[in-house]
Design a protein around this nucleic acid. Structure first.
Lengths: 246, 246
DNA sequence: TCACATTTGTCCGTATGTATC
DNA sequence: AGATACATACGGACAAATGTG
């Protein structure tokens, strides 16, 4: 891809504060290819030796570039014969991992997260009510039924309850809302693995979700929003003092 | 810290899906120290050779661990005599960058982005009006002045105009709002590089920003929201039909 | 101004662990 | 079980950057 020795590449005379390192350029280059669609999830990047030949850099440099792509959620690296760097899209997982760091470092409080989540979902609800079609409604109902089923088996339906909000976001028809809600749900999901489960609360949530769904069916925005305002802060409360428990 | 060869360390018989790699353990170890407060922003980690001695691993392994910490926003690495890995706290920036990746990977349309942005900023405005202090107001005013200055010199004040919204987000006091707005602005900034600049519109924006700031000073939420509803879609229009041209 | 020391950046060669066939 | 292909990790070396005497 680049036969010119990267070492000796030209620099603008007004040097940027930090001269770019080779592994950064390599990772940026590969990332561009992925975003452009040259590689799709499931595809394999060339092996490290092959990449080091193509970019005309050492294997160590390639490895550092791959670390960046791996942590960013663009690839996963598998060892062994047919292993290598495989394209994935776990970027939202990376976002949530980064958010967890932010919470541990007290840059974001559970309150911040809960407040923001409530506001975003309230705003989003208008689009849900406008654009949700029959299959969205059906998906939400199925989710509630699955949650009930799990609860009856004695399994706290965390996963299903969080999934409800993802389906909601999808039903808004706006992918940007989905990205935001999905990443916040990923963090909350991470929290749930660290606190003692509360079966009763999780069961109660199912009822509220059913009420929200009913409001959506009636296209009653005000009612839906009131339900969210009651529902989401309740969940937020459970995360108080969570920053420490890591 | 660990004199036993890391290669041969014990493994639980019930296989973890993916055996942890040495550089992951090293980075996790260092991260723990930072979160615990053993290192504070401004402090320097030991040099790479010193770390490789302490952890009893090769320098390459240490470097890959440092890459992770760097991308996660825990350290920044400087070359040279008194350089090295310096503790910083740019985790929020890491969250934003990761969100930008997610947005770009999902090829979110300018329309979805603009719609979502309007809703988020409207919701956020309530917190801005409640919590913005004198220094926030001052920051916003300075930003407007800088934009005017640039415009008078004939430079389209894109950067400043986008920065206005970042300052707004910061003034909300909620860092979750901030990372969301920050990443949306980064994507919009990227859009701007792909369309012909329109000097008049950019200049017009400055006036609207001043009106918004005035509304904030008067703590007039309704007025501020009306201004946002007029302002943001205008910017969105400029990117219509842009999604293909990438 | 210039040499010097320190530290990161990059390269090469080699050995080993791991997964597939 | 053996061969193969790959990532992982190690060691040594030199280049480049950057502050200091």
């Amino acid at each position: 891809m680049n036969s010119k020795p990267l070492e000796t590449r030209e620099r603008n005379s007004f040097s940027p504060i930090k001269t770019k390192r080779v592994f950064e350029e390599v990772s940026a280059e590969i990332k561009k290819s992925i975003v452009r669609g040259a590689f799709k999830p499931g595809d394999r990047l060339p092996s490290e030796v092959e990449l080091s030949r193509q970019f005309n850099v050492s294997r160590q440099t390639i490895r550092e570039a791959l670390r960046i792509l791996e942590l960013s959620g663009f690839i996963t690296v598998q060892r062994g014969a047919v292993g290598g760097a495989i394209i994935v899209d776990t970027i939202l997982k990376s976002v949530s991992e980064s958010l967890v760091d932010a919470i541990q470092m007290r840059k974001i409080t559970p309150d911040d997260l809960s407040t923001c989540r409530l506001e975003v979902e309230k705003a989003m609800m208008r689009y849900v009510i406008s654009y949700a079609d029959a299959s969205d409604i059906q998906g939400l109902q199925e989710n509630i039924d699955e949650a009930k089923e799990a609860a009856e088996k004695g399994i706290p339906p965390f996963k299903q309850n969080l999934q409800f909000h993802r389906i909601l976001a999808k039903a808004s028809g706006n992918h940007m809302f989905f990205v935001i809600v999905d990443s916040m749900m990923a963090v909350i999901s991470d929290f749930f693995t660290r606190i003692p489960p509360d079966f009763d609360i999780s069961k109660g949530v199912i009822g509220v979700h059913q009420e929200i769904l009913d409001a959506i069916k009636e296209k009653n925005l005000d009612k839906a929003i009131v339900l969210l305002e009651k529902h989401i802060p309740e969940i937020g409360h459970r995360f108080r003092g969570m920053a420490d428990s890591a």
